[in-house]
Design a protein around this nucleic acid. Structure first.
Length: 848
RNA sequence: GCGAAAGUGGCGGAAUUGGUAUACGCGCUAGACUUAGGAUCUAGUCCCGAGAGAUCGGGUUGGGGGUUCGAGUCCCCUCUUUCGCACCA
């Protein structure tokens, strides 16, 4: 019963009421516009940016929260370092879910999107995340997308935007075309439907012209994860090689026919191995190749061949390019001349040659290419060795090869090159020789294709073009922007863009002649919106220009970009491309938009549905709502747990039980705050607590610099435990406890902003914790006078000794040798040498 | 198949980059305070063996070699998992 009379009784202390504390500070931050930045001043600037979210109808779960919490911790840390940190937020608000909601529920995308934005904004608020909302942007507003249109017109003017008819990826689920980057393993990146091919006339951005610059730029991006850079390099897929012309033998003609040499009589191939040309025993064209029709025109089975070509053309990409896909081909019955050997070789069509890469046709060298060998053996086509391995039996028929010979042997039977080994030098000599003969030239090919930006959907930026029967595709003049998306639209879910059925939108006067024209109804890929949005934050309300180049020069590029790895190629490649376009327009002074990139790991959790631990998502039924968690334990608890769960760049498994550890920790911190007055005026352990305070500042600072929030929290838990013990045992004075507590609050603020601000205020500090400066440590105060050293004998730990911190090697050695345990383990053997690691250990090595 | 990353207690993970392996937290065990508690506090918790005991010995970072006074960390081989790319000529 005595306990109840004591002031330390927990029941009598003010309880940790996270609900009212969090509300109080969230209100205050909002009211005081705490995160607002005046862009006119850029000293000590730091532009940090979270990838702006899509305002989908689903509430954010704790897995999404990790990203924003992490960013907010970084932001607050920067603020406390006196940085002028800009942390804006906006909405990637165009896109299919809004349109699908319109179809399914009859709500127009605008109110649907605005409603979702409101919900998400409230969620950010409840996490205690500070954004500069004065610069909020939303890509679905005409104020934003008019600059997409403006950019499009500028790119059109420079030939970077263009229209062409081409085979394109069609997603039957989304009922629109897709960019190459949006096709993952032959399926739509968004909805997973198998993608098919269609021949359509579409708008493209000429990103391929920037392929080399995009590659070169990667080398300078030291602040990017290696993984992302590798993925981008692979995506661009630069290959050096040669183009080689093969003359087609005219029908009924022969190799020596003088009719050869006409332009139309050639087939050009791309190869990275021109040094194997003597082994090219046939040519293969993609069935879609424009020359295919002409080559089979006189074939007796022409109709059958044509329908086969159609079949290949209509094969979905998954089947066409999949791993186990069977190679299938047809002989055209025509021949071409191998310019190196002068021999006629058959021309085939086969599905394993892709129409979009290189020239859409290859020289097949079965001896030295795995795929060609497989096809040659399947069709009984000849195999000819160029590089002959040293142990190759003279009598062996190359057609018996089981595996293509890739880099072995020396060239035989190719006169000027006999004896050469495979390598870049040999390739160069072959290219020079081909050039001399006038049948080939050096050539670089890329896997990257131009960015298809047209979408046959409503909820996107209208492409500012009017088609005139007289003047063709006419750009909408700049002073007529924006081309506003009409509101009165019927969403039926039928194929075709709903915009096509809005006469007031479609019918437009030709800007050139004023005659009746038809407006482009395709809208832009939403990745256009996100390719430059980071610049619009710097001029969110400017209705006169896309952004202010002077402000952009001061604030951009983004110093720290944070977001998911899923954008490793898509968004990040497009943004790097558009940045270069803007650079070429003279609007920005840099070519790389994001100096440092951080990809947070995803949160996983066990899913009852699948019986496996997998990425947290609403559809998998394994998501955890922050709403309930915040209600029960508070946003600070969620924040601390999320940061403590593991390294932020690794995926982490959510553990419902472990969350309470974070709450216990914060409760302990709270209790210390309520008990500081119990500390005695003088404390025997003051020195040690002070030492721990400085050591913790050092550790946490070091951790924060490396985004190691998990170990930063661990260090703070240790300091909290030390403080609790000191108070419990009354071993530290009030002054020293208060100092340690103040530092603890400062160091903990980025992780748990609400409770730390509240306790800081209770400590009668006038300025807010966020405005206080990050605590500094004194190395001298971290050092101890006496330190413990580990003593090893022959590498095994045998004892610990205490010595003066500045003891020299001889003193350490004699102290170690004085240990009984050490003597016992040395077993009378002679000391061969002693290795001393200052401040850590001494290893006594005995002679054996 | 190619490329990259990673394998540490029952679980999440730590280790100042070659120097005390398992910090911190969850869980678990025992106890205290409680009408009660999923609250709070205290002690313990890698494995094996010895001891009543404080302790003492041995082993341990997927597996096998190597370098070194000393290896979770470096090198070689191997297994497993995850991710990315994949008929790109």
């Amino acid at each position: 019963m005595r306990r109840f009379e004591e002031p330390t009784n927990p029941a009598m202390m003010s309880p940790y009421d996270h609900k009212s504390i969090e509300k109080k500070w969230q209100d205050r931050w909002e009211k005081q516009r705490t995160a607002e930045v005046d862009l006119r001043h850029a000293q000590r600037k730091h532009y940090m940016l979270m990838m702006f979210p899509y305002p989908s109808g689903d509430r954010l779960h704790v897995g999404h929260g990790r990203n924003y919490i992490l960013g907010d911790a970084v932001y607050r840390y920067l603020r406390m370092h006196g940085k002028r940190a800009l942390n804006p937020m906006g909405w990637d608000a165009f896109g299919l879910p809004a349109e699908n909601a319109a179809i399914q529920r009859g709500v127009h995308p605008t109110p649907w999107t605005l409603g979702n934005i409101k919900v998400m904004k409230e969620q950010f608020r409840r996490w205690g995340i500070l954004y500069d909302w004065s610069k909020e942007i939303s890509s679905c507003t005409p104020e934003y997308y008019r600059w997409n249109q403006w950019l499009f017109l500028r790119m059109l003017e420079k030939g970077i935007a263009y229209k062409k008819k081409a085979p394109v990826n069609w997603c039957p689920g989304c009922k629109t075309v897709l960019a190459n980057e949006q096709v993952v393993e032959g399926a739509c990146e968004r909805c997973g439907s198998a993608v098919s091919q269609r021949d359509l006339e579409q708008w493209f951005f000429r990103i391929t012209d920037y392929a080399d610059r995009l590659l070169e730029g990667l080398d300078g991006l030291d602040g990017w994860p290696e993984k992302v850079k590798v993925m981008q390099r692979n995506w661009v897929g630069r290959s050096e090689g040669a183009e080689i012309d093969f003359a087609v033998v005219p029908l009924g003609g022969s190799a020596a026919d003088p009719a050869l040499g006409h332009q139309e009589g050639k087939i050009t191939v791309f190869t990275t191995r021109p040094d194997t040309i003597h082994g090219a025993t046939f040519l293969v064209l993609a069935p879609e190749h424009p020359r295919a029709a002409e080559l089979i025109a006189d074939h007796p089975d022409r109709t059958a061949l044509e329908s086969w070509i159609d079949k290949v053309r209509n094969t979905p990409r998954i089947e066409r390019e999949g791993e186990g896909t069977v190679k299938e081909g047809r002989a055209t019955g025509r021949f071409a001349i191998n310019p190196a050997t002068g021999r006629a070789i058959p021309i085939w069509l086969a599905n394993y040659v892709l129409p979009g890469y290189g020239t859409g046709s290859i020289m097949a060298v079965p001896a030295h290419d795995t795929r060609d060998l497989m096809f040659a053996r399947q069709e009984g086509l000849p195999v000819r060795l160029v590089y002959v391995p040293a142990d190759w039996p003279a009598e062996r028929d190359p057609a018996t090869l089981n595996e293509a010979i890739l880099d072995l042997g020396t060239i035989e039977n190719a006169p000027p090159f006999d004896g050469s080994v495979a390598g870049p030098e040999t390739i160069r000599r072959f290219i020079a020789w081909l050039e001399e003969q006038g049948v080939g030239r050096a050539k670089v090919s890329y896997r990257l294709r131009d960015w298809l930006i047209s979408r046959q959907r409503y909820w996107g930026t209208p492409i500012p073009i009017i088609y005139c029967p007289k003047h063709g595709a006419v750009p909408v003049p700049e002073d007529q922007l924006p081309v506003v998306l009409p509101v009165d639209v019927e969403f039926t879910g039928r194929e075709g863009n709903p915009l096509e059925r809005v006469p007031s939108f479609v019918e437009a006067a030709c800007p050139t002649c004023g005659g009746p024209g038809r407006r482009e109804t395709d809208t832009m890929d939403t990745f256009v919106d996100s390719s430059w949005y980071y610049l619009r934050y710097l001029a969110a309300h400017d209705s006169t220009k896309i952004f202010d180049p002077a402000i952009a020069a001061k604030w951009a590029p983004v110093d720290q970009y944070i977001g998911g790895i899923e954008h490793a190629i898509l968004h990040l490649l497009y943004a790097r491309f558009v940045c270069r376009v803007l650079f070429d327009f003279g609007l920005v002074t840099f070519e790389e938009p994001f100096t440092n990139l951080f990809n947070q790991g995803m949160i996983t959790r066990f899913s009852e549905k699948s019986g496996r631990t997998e990425k947290m998502s609403k559809s998998r039924g394994n998501s955890v709502s922050p709403d309930e968690l915040i209600e029960q334990m508070g946003a600070d608890t969620e924040r601390v747990y999320t940061l403590f769960i593991g390294p932020p760049d690794k995926e982490a498994e959510w553990n419902d039980e472990a969350v309470s550890g974070a709450h216990r920790f914060l409760s302990r911190v709270w209790r210390i705050g309520q008990r500081l007055s119990e500390a005695p005026p003088i404390g025997p352990a003051d020195g040690e607590l002070e030492r721990r305070r400085h050591a913790t500042i050092q550790r946490v600072t070091h951790c924060m610099e490396r985004y190691a929030f998990n170990t930063a929290v661990a260090a703070l838990m240790e300091l909290t435990n030390d403080l609790t013990r000191a108070l419990e045992e009354k071993t530290a004075s009030r002054l020293v406890c208060e100092e340690a507590f103040d530092s603890l609050l400062q160091l903990l603020h980025p992780m748990a902003p609400h409770v730390t601000e509240e306790l800081w205020e209770q400590r009668d500090h006038i300025e807010s914790l966020l405005d206080s400066s990050w605590p500094e440590f004194d190395e001298k105060k971290i050092r101890r006078a006496r330190i413990e050293l580990v003593v090893q004998v022959d590498g095994k730990l045998r004892d610990r000794i205490e010595v003066d911190a500045d003891a020299d090697e001889r003193q350490v050695r004699s102290a170690a040798l004085a240990s009984e345990k050490v003597q016992e383990h040395m077993g009378g053997r002679e000391l061969a040498k002693a290795v001393v690691v200052p401040g850590r250990l001494i290893n006594l090595v005995t002679r054996r």
